[in-house]
Design a binder for these strands. Sequence first.
DNA 1: CTTGGAAAGTCAACAAGGCTGACTTAAAAT
DNA 2: ATTTTAAGTCAGCCTTGTTGACTTTCCAAG
Lengths: 169, 169
Amino acid sequence: MAEGGIGPGSGETLLFLTDEQLRKGIEAMFFAYRGFTADPDRILENHAYGRAHHRAIHFIHRSPGTTVNSLLAVLGVTKQSLNRVLRTLIEDGLVESRVGRRDKRERHLFLTGPGAVLERELSDAQRARMRAAYRAAGPAAVAGFRQVLEAMMDPEQRAQFQQLRDGGA
Amino acid sequence: MAEGGIGPGSGETLLFLTDEQLRKGIEAMFFAYRGFTADPDRILENHAYGRAHHRAIHFIHRSPGTTVNSLLAVLGVTKQSLNRVLRTLIEDGLVESRVGRRDKRERHLFLTGPGAVLERELSDAQRARMRAAYRAAGPAAVAGFRQVLEAMMDPEQRAQFQQLRDGGA
DNA sequence: CTTGGAAAGTCAACAAGGCTGACTTAAAAT
DNA sequence: ATTTTAAGTCAGCCTTGTTGACTTTCCAAG
């Protein structure tokens, strides 16, 4: 199409940012993200939960005691949407919601024992794939992977990511 | 790059695959994918289309004349799901469906003029972000990025990706 | 101390986009 | 002639996102 005849050996340019190269990156993201979510999705099916539940569980595990509002900000959904997910997790005894001591309007969220078990199951599966990919690609590739991903985020998302990254390191 | 722990410091270990490192990779994928889809999503809102339409348009543009069945395989959804999306695109005159000449059961899909215009608008936005990320990270990082993504795919998806990649290069 | 506003939760309604199952039509393959 | 395949359609369901309207709780500022 627009490509194909851009130049003999289009890989020779310093930045090699042809539409072709960029398109390959776009498609790689698409297919890789499918792989990234495939294992947890399979596990969640058995529990009658979806990806939204996984995300909530992940970030509650990651920041125990987080408030609903801050979880909202990280997940980037509406409170009504999160509330539906959270309610089922609380009803099912996977998440505990404790009224704040300093500010009693706030609810602090924690995983219960069973919640932590599911979290472990999910993250073990996801880490196993990530570990395999890292091993196959090697340390240098991993550093590049992380750099590009970080550069691809919106500034807001990047700030949140870096806060989580540095705080949790 | 700031310190995620990947650089010099912990970067000397051969595998450096702590749960912490893996978790950061997982969260980076989550936030980066949001950024990855943000620009097209904004454009699609104005056209009353969704991500599913974008994916169909992308792969029809990428492989003009592709059949419904092969599009199904690439997208990884059911034909009922794809059909709903395809029907609206055909009704709206963005996609044309031609009966196959060799095999009249098949329908070959093409973008129309207006379809190509929308495709261009969407892919321009997505490429702009990808280009910026690539520029910020540099050529070596990009190579690593692609390696890790490819290793993260399911074998089936990887085969499809490589076919697209090599065929379209 | 009253009141304004923030935080949280709830209800209702809706849409996109997945899914399954059942079924038709047309054409190719056996 | 029969079976299989490609495509399309209809109906119904689920998850997960959205708005909008509303209540309850409670901190904090006037």
